[in-house]
């Protein structure tokens, strides 16, 4: 019931923060934690944001654990997809190319930056809602959001200049 209703959204949030490779495990951890922490839930209507907060915390913890353990090599099926795309699908190709550039950059972000970007852009929450989910002030959320975006922009600039250099040579 509760699991069926909220599992997909929880998975998507986890995937947005830690990536699809680990999202299933994080989702399981989230629900187990929710089950164990249920006594702290005082409002049935607040279950969704409460679960979201747990998922964010679990995702951040997961990333920190990954950082300590070492990051596994990505076996994402989409990697390398660009090379198999027909030239006529420019938009899709561009999106995949963007992903190839942005994915590694996103993985370099701090867990906190990842979380706020995921909540705001991937899950569509307002900055205030994202801040609430993270338990931080709106100003802090904005700061992390900008820092995360700037880091991604930086990776794009680096990639573009590399491409230009390659083209020139």
């Amino acid at each position: 019931m509760l699991v069926e209703r909220h599992a997909a959204d929880t998975y998507r949030l986890a995937a947005a923060i830690v990536g699809p490779f680990d999202a299933g495990d994080v989702t399981q951890e989230t629900f187990v934690a929710a089950w164990q922490q249920l006594p702290r839930l005082r409002d049935a209507d607040a279950f969704a944001p409460w679960l979201r907060r747990i998922c964010v915390n679990r995702s951040r913890n997961w990333l920190r654990g990954v950082n300590r353990r070492g990051r596994p090599v990505s076996l994402d099926a989409d990697d390398g997809l660009a090379s198999r795309l027909p030239d006529t699908r420019r938009d899709f190709r561009a999106a995949v190319e963007a992903r190839m550039v942005l994915e590694p950059a996103f993985e370099q972000l701090s867990p906190d930056q990842r979380a706020v970007l995921a909540l705001h852009y991937s899950m569509g929450l307002s900055i205030a809602e994202a801040a609430d989910a993270l338990g931080i002030r709106v100003g802090t959320a904005k700061s992390r959001l900008n820092a995360g975006l700037n880091a991604l922009r930086g990776s794009v600039i680096g990639s573009d200049s590399d491409a230009q250099t390659e083209a020139a040579s």
């Binding site: 599992a7 998975y11 998507r12 399981q28 629900f31 963007a98 995921a118 852009y121 922009r153």
Partner: peptide
């Protein structure tokens, strides 16, 4: 590459399709 593409990439991260056995695996874990 521009900001729109960055935003679109971030949005795409929230569209991951859950595995079919997600609910059962979660309930097993619980």
């Amino acid at each position: 590459m521009n900001d729109d593409q960055i935003v679109e990439y971030l949005r795409s991260r929230g569209r991951a399709e859950p595995p079919l056995d997600l609910v059962s695996s979660v309930m097993d874990a619980v």
